[in-house]
Design a protein around this nucleic acid. Structure first.
Lengths: 351, 351
DNA sequence: ACACCCGTGGAAACCGGTTCCCGATGCGGA
DNA sequence: TCCGCATCGGGAACCGGTTTCCACGGGTGT
């Protein structure tokens, strides 16, 4: 078969140069824009470029040290609403700054995460943004520390978003939000409505996110001189199904409570469904609150009282600070505030 | 200031070679794995690699023609649940096949989209997956056609996911799902419950997705010999707010209907909230159905009857078929089936 | 009229890899 | 003992760009 001139073999800068009757350097200079090139030559080159629909290979440019590096975003599951919000923030800010954005989901697998970070290092990504809670074990710290070091030594940087921070000295940017404070405020609100037995539907027991929220739950009680019944704090994970399961179990076991605080809006959604299935009215019979303020929270019935977390802003900040860091001063630690948003799912206790 | 040996200057293959006392070619061969290298040399090289924590530059490999190319995923907004589902499918399949995955969101801006596709061409992406409905104008077809051609001539390919297909001959992979069939089945179900006046909360009037669903709505009526009241089909967009607004307006204007079919689960969620606000019971007073079967649909109260669209599978298929195409036979057109999932939000009409 | 400088564009080196080509070993067989 | 072959590894060209360095030509200042 004959090869047409515009075949799948993408044209190189030398092809363009040949067609324009100049050297490759000249084409590069015309496209670069800064170097003085006579108008006539420029026109010829531009015509050749248009004729051949030429676009310079971004990877070759990258190798040569020009062109904008890529950002990497590693999360557990893009399907989670709060993850999606952060991803959106990251992506928006990245493109605003002219960077492309790689995304990888780990499905919660540590091996996978390691593998991805290694790939990103090979890609010479400008920064790797690691998102989502994790268990704060020494193994975690060591592993993450190694990632941070190897990334830093490659001229890249690691950003931890909503993850346990490493010890001091690690070349890491940490961006967190106030899990404990938000939970504290939320539970304080519930207590202020007269509830005294509030069920806590927790997440993975070893995740710092879940722990922070649980601490807030406890602290709010103690601040009122209350001592929460340990039987009222349950652990599961962060999914809708976990909330559903936990709630059903609590109901079946006849646990005594007048309000439920879920560690996540998703968990709250599952719990709400279980409550409805049991014929209970929210907030008439039981009050319910969530955490995250995902967009769907207000479409639950009743609209869910929850804690707003500035996820999108978190993502934006992650890329902004990551790109702002220098090799000499790689570390930064930001803590974003949260606030409770009162809707309809929490009512006064008793009758 | 003194430069430490492990400074931000990432080490090259020649550095590794120097440390191992061999040539760069040998290092490359050891890392490549296939070429015969003596055990002693291999050990020395591997030690040097480990000592320096060396990772080959993926971009340089790409330029040299080895290494796995990346995939690009262009959508409107990663925050939309159905988009997120597709993104998940794309990402999963891409990493399963060993490809990295770039993501760009256009915010619905055509200029942006064009720009992104151009960037992806520069990246020499293996495929560009374009997602989401669009108006099927001649301008759209021409523009998209140009993208397809320029991508194809660069050895890449364009995949249209849930987008209007181009005419025949365009080097494009199209993956659609059956909008009309799903809507037909759904509305047939609603009609079979005895409803005769069903309100249709439509999307953007010129989007093919919305049009397909509306066609299904009409066809289901006609198949029963019914002639739907044109006053009962409203147009908005695909958001939760649109559903809320439209529903309120319909209620305020005193439209006469016993069931509501929304063009999207999000729209249905907004509509449901509006119905609740009006003190109406679903499905007691009004039945409601959605479309998309986003994960949240079953956590609405009542759980939403809707049409399941295999979004994640769609994403997976997109990358699989895109990567399967050859330059000689670039076109393919897939149509995935949809099915209604009956939950609790549609009840019998009348009393 | 001569020297100098500036504008312009080509050749070559470089970025960090891979791979082809070939020469130098070491080993076994005749 | 010598030859031939297989194994191993170095040099150089290449991928597709950019950038430095330099040569050339023409206009201007003295």
């Amino acid at each position: 078969m004959t090869r047409k001139s515009e075949d799948a073999s993408r044209s190189t800068i030398r092809d363009v140069a040949a067609r324009a009757g100049v050297s490759a350097s000249t084409v590069s200079r015309v496209l670069g824009g800064v170097y003085p090139v006579s108008a006539a030559t420029r026109t010829r080159v531009m015509r050749a470029v248009r004729d051949m629909d030429y676009v310079a290979d971004a990877r070759a440019k990258a190798v040569a040290g020009v062109g904008t590096p890529t950002l990497a975003f590693v999360l557990e599951d893009i399907t989670g609403p709060s993850f999606a919000l952060m991803a959106h923030g990251v992506e928006r800010e990245a493109t605003r700054l002219g960077h492309l954005c790689l995304v990888c989901s780990t499905e919660g697998d540590v091996e996978h995460e390691l593998e991805f970070v290694e790939m990103m290092r090979a890609q010479r990504a400008a920064a790797v943004i690691l998102v989502g809670g994790a268990a704060d074990t020494v193994e975690y710290r060591e592993r993450t520390r190694r990632m941070a070091d190897s990334l830093a030594s490659a001229g890249s940087r690691l950003v931890l978003c909503g993850r346990p921070p490493l010890g001091p000295g690690a070349p890491v940017t940490v961006i967190e939000y106030d899990n404990e404070g938000g939970a504290y405020a939320l539970v304080a609100h519930v207590l202020s409505q007269g509830h005294r037995r509030v069920l806590f539907l927790g997440g993975k027991a070893d995740h710092t996110t879940a722990q922070g929220r649980e601490r807030g739950y406890l602290a709010a009680h103690r601040a009122r001189g209350l001592d929460p019944d340990p039987a009222l704090v349950l652990n599961g994970d962060f999914t809708r199904d976990s909330g559903h399961r936990l709630m059903r179990r609590a109901l079946k076991e006849g646990l005594d409570f007048t309000a439920v605080v879920a560690t996540t809006d998703m968990v709250a959604a599952g719990a709400l469904t279980a409550l409805h299935e049991a014929g209970l009215d929210v907030p008439g019979d039981v009050s319910l609150a969530g955490y995250d303020d995902i967009p769907f929270a207000r479409d639950l019935h009743p609209a869910l009282t929850t804690v707003h977390v500035p996820y999108e802003e978190l993502g934006r900040l992650a890329v902004r600070t990551a790109l702002g860091r220098t090799a000499e001063d790689p570390a930064e630690h930001l803590l974003l505030g949260t606030h409770v948003v009162v809707r309809d799912s929490v009512g006064a206790a008793g009758t």
